[in-house]
């Protein structure tokens, strides 16, 4: 068992356990912390797969920005009534879990079929030429430059939209509507 294999199993256990934490933690703030742990585990898996730049971006964007945004928005709320907010109804729950199980079976069989001829082990070394990050930048600014620009425009629209939404009518002293 090499270090790579050991790391994979360790990280797999960490990510799956903390993902289950997101699902089952009663308090949303603990869910957020679990999600941070999952993100860091996924980032380490990226590094294991040779995607070092994406591993850094994953930590900066997800653990650093998105999750901080979540935690700060949570500070605005009174979350007492949200603790243990699961859906009600046994029948509906059974249907939901059943449909997810069916989807899992479908994906699993698709993986089985498509990886039939592929060797269990990854072939070759985990490198994409001399400088993978430089190659990534080259591809991003030549072949994919239009998508990149469109995403920039999208981010601008989203920033304006988020501000407009959270400043919408009602103010901070809106009365409760039943």
């Amino acid at each position: 068992m090499t270090a790579e294999v050991f790391l994979f199993w360790f990280l797999a256990i960490v990510t799956v356990v903390s993902a289950l934490g997101v699902l089952f933690m009663p308090n949303p703030i603990y869910s957020a912390f679990s999600l941070i742990m999952t993100m860091i585990g996924v980032s380490a898996l990226f590094a294991l797969l040779g995607a070092y730049f994406l591993a850094g971006v994953q930590v900066i964007v997800y653990a650093g920005a998105v999750l901080v945004l979540f935690v700060m928005v949570m500070m605005l709320f009174d979350l007492k009534s949200e603790i243990k907010a699961f859906t009600k109804g046994t029948l509906g729950g059974v249907f939901k879990i059943g449909s997810v199980a069916v989807l899992a079976g479908l994906i699993l069989s698709a993986i089985m079929v498509t990886t039939q001829g592929v060797a269990i082990k990854f072939q070759g070394q985990a490198d994409f030429g001399m400088q993978p990050t430089r190659l990534l930048g080259n591809k991003l600014f030549t072949q994919y430059v239009i998508i990149f620009e469109i995403l920039g425009a999208l981010l601008l629209v989203v920033a304006v939209g988020a501000v407009a939404l959270s400043r919408s009518k009602g103010g901070t002293h809106a009365r409760r509507i039943d």
Binding site: A85, T87, K96
Partner: peptide
């Protein structure tokens, strides 16, 4: 599917 809290 199972949680009712929007944040989760």
């Amino acid at each position: 599917l199972l949680r009712k809290n929007i944040l989760t």
